[in-house]
């Protein structure tokens, strides 16, 4: 069905792009400019779309092309545009000093990558195309959670959540032959869009109310 050698090429392309997604994730850890972080997320999402496109081309599966197009429209164009607008409107451009400083965070990011690879090891036989994609997906998840804890600006937390979602979608591409069924992909797509809008509304209201989007100041509810 596939020409000889094409599986090898597709597999290597996916491995390469997944690795780039990981690199972008690690670059986000020390990044403090919000607009730059948004750009890193957009490029990472573009790589995810490209991986989906390779899968679609390789299997001649048209519904996976739809997934790739949705990813480009949603996560590469629309969400970064929305978040950019939000950053401009609330006029906060920079993240404050994170809980862990940059070198320590990078070190921890490396450790989490290692952990992701160890955890994914027993499941490598399940991967369809590409190598270590599941490991990278788990690493995106772990570092995404770390970013959420380590950063205090609400927008950075939203971005961290989105990278976690990228990780889950990468796992979906890595572990299944043709990705998730189209109706599920559509559901996830709209949920993520609405989630960012809802979070945006909340960020805006928090900014209006406490003149900051530093979530460590949200600490009155206890017990």
């Amino acid at each position: 069905m596939h020409p000889p050698g094409s599986t090898e090429i597709a597999s290597q392309a996916i491995t390469f792009m997944a690795a780039l997604m990981l690199v972008l994730q690690l670059l986000m850890i020390p990044q403090r400019m919000l607009l730059a972080t948004i750009r890193l997320f957009a490029i990472q999402s573009f790589l995810l779309a490209a991986i989906a496109a390779v899968v679609a081309y390789h299997h001649q599966a048209s519904h996976v092309y739809v997934v790739a197009i949705l990813t480009v429209v949603g996560k590469v164009l629309l969400l970064p545009w929305l978040l950019n607008r939000l950053v401009r409107r609330i006029e906060i451009h920079q993240e404050i000093e994170p809980l862990l400083n940059a070198p320590a965070s990078m070190l921890l990011g490396g450790g989490l990558t290692l952990l992701g690879y160890v955890v994914a090891r027993p499941f490598t036989s399940l991967e369809r195309l590409g190598h270590n994609t599941l490991a990278i997906a788990l690493t995106l998840l772990l570092t995404g959670f770390f970013l959420m804890i380590n950063r205090r600006k609400a927008i950075t937390q939203v971005l961290a959540l989105l990278t976690v979602e990228n990780g889950v979608m990468l796992a979906a591409v890595a572990l299944t032959t043709y990705g998730m069924p189209l109706v599920v992909e559509l559901g996830i797509f709209f949920d993520v869009l609405v989630a960012v809008m809802v979070l945006g509304i909340l960020v805006y209201r928090i900014r209006e109310n406490i003149a900051s989007i530093d979530t460590s100041q949200l600490n009155q509810l206890k017990g």
Binding site: L141, F145, L161, V168, A171, A195, L202, I206, L218, L221
Partner: peptide, 24 residues
């Protein structure tokens, strides 16, 4: 209110983390 925004933020962030894991 400040406290209801805090509650909503906690709800949506923890809920989203949880649901990301459920999606996995």
């Amino acid at each position: 209110r400040r406290t209801s925004l805090e509650a909503a933020w906690k709800y949506v962030i923890l809920g989203s983390i949880g649901l990301a894991l459920a999606l996995l």
